[in-house]
Nucleic acid binder design. Structure first.
Lengths: 256, 256
DNA sequence: CGCGATTTGTGCACGTCTTCACAAGCGCCT
DNA sequence: AGGCGCTTGTGAAGACGTGCACAAATCGCG
């Protein structure tokens, strides 16, 4: 965007762009670019081409260029992107210039692991509180933090100005915890419990379900197996139904 | 709920599976539907409308119907879907009728948690082996499984016929482990390490990066803050950011 | 036996995301 | 200074995903 009005930042000095309205798909990839850029910086690169960066991030180079153009970042034609500058810009856009405080609720198996995961600390977050509803877990110390009772959430929230809540409880407890988080003003939640959370408008929930990931893989595994079993006759997969005997079967198996 | 007949279901007694060619987006939602269906079954429902199921799964009802229609499943107009039958069909499509063996590599913080996560066992998977490259961890027993050295992978693979590999190592070790997994014939990998894996054609990799999820939330948090700070200015809200050093932008308008 | 209430399955239009292909811009070399 | 090779930024086209709205199908009932 050279002379277009879109980003239209009159008098922008050039170091840091404003906060544009990014496509979700782009937002989801920015962290990946950021990680790749940090690797490149550590390896001593000062500039990187879209081709190189896209390879490091595992995406298509045109997609990468479009993503970066959305955030108004400038590379230099014929040269590439300045690694340090790009890191700065992406971190700014992602809001990582401040170290956000995270409250982790549920210190079971998974919660323990998350509490000890240093990937959070190294990528812009600070686990500010550990909470659990189980009284027998309260008081335990993990990684220098003492587990407090979840009912202390209001106090914790004001002490630490929690920006993000992470739910690592069993599914049965998750909605209740979500409600409590929302009640103390948390508007971003990362949910590891296998259940759907309902939250008011304006609260963002992202869900990570480990079993679902495996099930998706299982589908593809199943699919690959069924394909190699049948010497693909060029037809649609549907024709490969257990056609022979399935007399009572679907009316649609032989569709089209 | 095990002894349901299979009305209309393809006679799938060990016969060659017939997998329609589902859109990825649909595949990604099927596990969610499945979970919701199990809940409904436990609650005693025998049938469920697309409206009810979609609410339980947190999606739009038209989308749900289209998804189910893709896998050729039948509901009954005027009535809804037979819960037990639908469970059976989705489990079949996802390849969950067999309990797939999972090898978990990397028994650190996260690996421990995954090894103890019962959501895997309860949703169609069996953790068949724990592996680590660190000799000091080999021999440790977790949840009834003994940690073996990652170099034993070939032996393990034949013993257990591993279908899926889970990588929970540090990023630096992940590519090597992936290569080892591929070498023993694993074609589905779930990667928790924050790095891009390169694998041969035909191998599926899914990635879960906990920090990325937080960073995406951080973006939206940042965005919400910048919007509430500048009420209703339309496009020019974007221009309100400091051009040079962003040292002064860190205060959020939202307190409490 | 037909009618109305209900719910599925889907055609269609719309929006988002991806990818290609290429002009415009930049630095370097002669 | 001018040309050349390289790389970005982006228009346009196509693939994909979503959601509406409605016809078709089924059940229950009088």
């Amino acid at each position: 965007m050279s002379q277009h009005r879109q980003p239209g930042a009159p008098g922008r000095a050039g170091a840091v762009p404003a906060l544009p309205d990014l496509p979700e798909a782009t937002v989801a990839r920015l962290p990946e670019y950021l990680r790749a850029l940090h690797n490149l910086a550590d390896a001593g690169h000062e500039t990187i081409s879209s081709e190189g960066l896209s390879a490091a991030a595992g995406v298509n180079s045109a997609k990468l260029r479009k993503d970066l153009s959305h955030l108004g970042s400038y590379g230099t034609r014929g040269v590439g992107y300045d690694v340090a500058l790009l890191i700065e810009q992406i971190e700014y856009v992602l809001g990582l210039t401040q170290r956000r405080a995270v409250a982790l609720v549920g210190v079971g198996n998974l919660g323990h692991a998350l509490a000890g995961y240093d990937g959070f600390a190294s990528r812009g977050f600070r686990i500010a509180a550990l909470l659990d509803a189980d009284a027998s877990r309260v008081g335990e110390e993990i990684n220098g933090l003492v587990v407090r009772h979840v009912d202390e959430l209001p106090a914790v929230a004001t002490e630490e100005s929690i920006a993000i809540g992470v739910i690592a409880t069993p599914a049965a407890a998750a909605q209740r915890v979500a409600d409590q988080l929302v009640a103390v003003g948390v508007t971003s939640i990362l949910n590891f419990a296998p259940c759907v959370l309902s939250v008011p408008e304006g609260v963002d929930v992202r869900k990570v379900d480990l079993a679902i990931e495996l099930q998706i893989l299982s589908f593809h595994e199943h699919r690959k197996a069924s394909l190699t079993a049948l010497p693909a006759t060029g037809g649609s997969a549907l024709t490969a139904l257990p056609g022979g005997l399935s007399a009572t079967d679907t009316q649609e198996a032989i569709g089209t």
